[in-house]
């Protein structure tokens, strides 16, 4: 259980904006082990987005090392990074980013299309399985416009699960949802974390959401301000049950 999924050492990231150098990350080190549910918090300008891009292998650090599941990201080319994302990371975005006019099943199949080792029938089976895991087994043929926001985000989570990544990387995944639906999503995340042992890194600025995770990393001005284990992890399921039932959808 103590396998290191993320291993970040003295990570720095600088951007050249004209003649000025913007130092977004000023030296960050932390490790995430398999099965952890980490939230990364911070106000805007704290370097949260930059860190997320690097964690998601969309960007590379200027200085410092980043090992994702033992792979040194720094040495990889653009195409190799794409392949790494395909095999090891499942993204969940704030705006869902589902393909319009495309069924839930096909949206979930999408990452597998870029994995040439997976056959057509296996692709379909795994997509159906992933949709079952997010409790959307009856909505396979629905297009995003026929689904509610929460359902769309669940399709997106299924898409993140389908390639069996080592880490689910969520970027403000509840940012577009009302609190009830947010709790539903968090409940699903907790379930995936506890029952299936999925490692989850969840970027958010809401302390309420962070309280559902097992660990919170607080960023401020490009440095880690606080890295705390959450001893008092709340259960989203219970919170959900405690909510007054006002609207019945």
């Amino acid at each position: 259980m103590s396998k290191k999924i993320l291993d970040i050492r003295e990570l720095k990231r600088e951007f050249q904006m004209g003649s000025e150098t913007v130092r977004a990350l000023k030296g960050i080190s932390f490790e995430v082990e398999a099965g952890e549910f980490v939230t990364i918090m911070g106000s805007s300008g704290s370097g949260k987005t930059t860190l997320l891009n690097i964690l998601g292998c969309l960007d590379k650090p200027s200085i410092g090392d980043y090992f994702l599941d033992g792979v040194d990201v720094k040495k990889l080319s653009r195409d190799e990074l794409a392949q790494l994302r395909n095999r090891k990371i499942g993204f969940v975005f704030q705006a869902y980013n589902l393909l319009p006019r495309t069924s839930a099943l096909e949206n979930v199949e999408l990452p597998l299309l870029y994995n040439r080792e997976i056959s057509v029938s296996e692709r379909r089976d795994r997509a159906i399985h992933a949709l079952e895991a997010v409790k959307l087994a009856e909505r396979l043929d629905h297009t995003p416009s026929q689904l509610s926001g929460g359902q769309q985000q669940r399709v997106a989570i299924a898409r993140a699960l389908v390639n069996e990544p080592v880490m689910i990387l969520a970027d403000e995944a509840t940012g577009n949802l009302d609190s009830r639906t947010s709790y539903e999503i968090m409940s699903l995340m907790q379930e995936l974390n506890s029952q299936q042992g999925k490692t989850i890194v969840f970027v958010t600025h809401e302390p309420d959401i962070a309280s559902f995770s097992s660990r919170t990393i607080q960023l401020r001005d490009g440095r880690i301000q606080k890295d705390t284990r959450n001893t008092d992890q709340r259960s989203a399921k219970e919170v959900l049950a405690g909510l007054p039932i006002t609207d019945d959808y």
Binding site: G56, L58, R78, D79, A82, Q83, R85, N86, R87, F91, F93, N97, L99, L110, P111, Y114, N115, R159, N163
Partner: peptide
């Protein structure tokens, strides 16, 4: 999106 989920 396609790039983020692994398209080169």
């Amino acid at each position: 999106l396609r790039m983020s989920i692994g398209a080169r």
